[in-house]
Amino acid sequence: MSLLALLLVTAQHQGHEMPAPEPAPACSPEHAAMGHCTMPEAKAPPAPPAPPPSPAPSCSPEHAAMGHCEMPAPKAPPPPACAPEHAAMGHCTLPDTTPPTPGAGNTPPPPAPRVGAADAIFGADAMAAARARLYAEHGGSAISQVMVDMAEARIGKGRDSYAWDAEARFGGDIDKLAVKSEGEGDFGGSLDEAEVQALWSHAIGPYFDVQAGVRQDIGPGASPTHAVIGFEGLAPYWFDVEGALFLSAKGDVTARLEASYDQRITQWLIVQPMAEVEAAFQDVAERGIGSGVSSVELGVRLRYEIAREFAPYVGFVWDRKLGKTARLARATSDGASRPAFVAGVRFWF
């Protein structure tokens, strides 16, 4: 079949070649293969016309497009045994008999010069600005992202409430400013608790940043300022994790650890389980926190990404205070356990 195709190509080509092929004595196989001249062995008896590669009459392109039948696969037949002449024509491949390329030497590289060959032609000043821009532009860009991961209403026992969790990042690949905020409050009531953090976020590896900065609490009660040291990144198995230690101006140390996971149900429907644990290294009476693990929040949210940037969701959260903190909460009217249905939107830009 390959031979047939070759002969056909040659025959068709001879039919309309403008300048008559020179009886070139120098007809290399390569040139013959390009159809530029004719090699002796190509002067075989004329080939019978090959059937045109048209679809089977029973399968018109329209029908194939409708999925009613299948067009013949557009593949060339596998080459038969490979004669050296044909290999030379490039129509098949001989077993590789080329000797392996000899190994390269080990001369040391030359010293690296200054990049600036164009200075001599266009002037060092004209080139300097363009060169600085070239280097800065390729890898040095600063990017911002504001991610409102959670903006929701919570409906449970007692008063309905609202909550948010957001983070904004500004800067380059290695160093960024991260601004985080989270909080909750009752509809028609006061802000319950809220905080804003401003952190320097520094990449320490492909997946993780270390973060350091300040946190300011906002709310009706005690609103201390904290120093923050923490981390944020992507853990194995695609868990988004985040953790921090907080040292308040009064010397109280607390900690927080969060993890979440995006499970894609379809390309647009995603279920996100999450967990957050808080702990204190001492009692913080003014904020109703006892030492030890103070609270845990578990949540699951089902979001639909109308666009990547905009996804309404519904879900369920269960906020449970633990240990001494729970006892303190029960002493007030708050209660230690607050399950709630949530509905909200995740958006970013």
Partner: peptide, 29 residues
Amino acid sequence: TPSRQLQIHLTGNMERYMWAFDGVKMNEV
């Protein structure tokens, strides 16, 4: 025959969308 050999690694990070030769981006070269 080449008198010298040179190996260049193509490196990247899809999570941070960083790409470089030998781990060093053009702006850090």
